[in-house]
């Protein structure tokens, strides 16, 4: 233990004009902090990955064996394997939202709120890390699924659709998670709300079956879920138009147009999510 027996004069000076950091530098610092905290907490990296990997590697092949390899010319295992993207992203972003509550309860957030940076950057700094971690996890998921037997048709254009959909959906879902974290006081309450946000929509969004087989009112409900659109674009990108389910959503004949419309829905969701997160956080930060 260190003891302080004598206090030397403190090397302190004051200055009149403290230059504030550029927004990019502040964002980089905040993201680096969040990343350093995240990588020291394996829970945030591994736990969200467990269920989707289990689905992709165990349940998807089992469903294929039980129900048949192809349905309507679509490889069912690949169909389900990509559905796990819709499970991974919400779970991952919810876990990231939990860290915001930890920041607040531990008091660490107060130091950040006293910093000369716009408070929106605190949200965006977290978002950058969530996107980066999610990207790594998605790559792991897709590669493992491919190794297990899923077949993807990977082209540059398809990959762009996939990346666009998962990026925008991640942004939107993190916005929801951060807004929840700003409104919910305790970790236990946040965790209890997580299934409703991260898991329930997955069952209605055409994850395991096309939304056309849902009862009529649920079919309509599914079309309003951002996850339905995100999954459709993800499948359009890596499996083609037939597996995407875009026709069930839009009823049009041009797959590219339908994919663009669905991507637009996810983009609107992303913008609304981030806006909600920044507003909620800023409002909660100042009493």
């Amino acid at each position: 233990m260190t003891t302080m027996t004598a206090i030397r004069p403190l090397p302190v000076r004051t200055r009149s004009a403290a230059p504030r950091p550029a927004a990019f530098n502040a964002l980089r610092t905040l993201a680096a902090r969040r990343f350093a905290l995240s990588v020291r907490t394996p829970r945030e990296l591994v736990v969200p990955l467990l269920t989707p990997v289990l689905f992709a590697l165990v349940i998807a092949p089992a469903l294929r064996d039980a129900l048949g390899a192809t349905h309507g010319g679509v490889d069912y295992m690949s169909f389900v394997a990509l559905a796990t993207v819709g499970l991974l992203i919400p779970l991952n972003t919810q876990f990231a939202g939990l860290s915001v509550i930890v920041d607040r309860l531990s008091g660490a957030q107060r130091e950040l709120l006293a910093a000369p940076v716009r408070r929106a950057l605190l949200v965006l700094g977290n978002l950058v890390v969530v996107v980066a971690i999610t990207a790594v996890q998605l790559a792991v998921l897709v590669v493992l699924a491919a190794i297990r037997g899923a077949t993807f048709d990977i082209t540059a254009a398809g990959l762009a659709w996939f990346v666009g959909a998962v990026l925008l959906f991640t942004i939107g879902m993190y916005g929801i998670a951060e807004a929840m974290a700003s409104r919910i006081g305790r970790q236990e309450e946040f965790i209890s709300a997580t299934p409703a946000v991260a898991i329930v929509p997955w069952f209605f969004a055409g994850s395991l079956f096309p939304i056309s087989v849902l009862p009529g009112f649920l079919d309509v409900f599914a079309k309003f879920l951002p996850l339905t659109h995100a999954l459709a674009v993800v499948r359009y990108g890596l499996m083609g138009a037939r597996a995407s389910g875009l026709t069930n959503i839009w009823g049009m004949s041009n797959p590219t147009a339908m994919a663009a419309l669905s991507l637009g829905v996810v983009a609107v969701f992303a913008v609304l999510g981030v806006t909600l997160a920044v507003r909620t956080f800023s409002k909660a930060a100042v009493h």
Partner: peptide, 10 residues
């Protein structure tokens, strides 16, 4: 601050 405000794992 009155309460300790530090990132303990860092």
């Amino acid at each position: 601050f009155q309460d300790q405000v530090l990132d303990l794992t860092l």
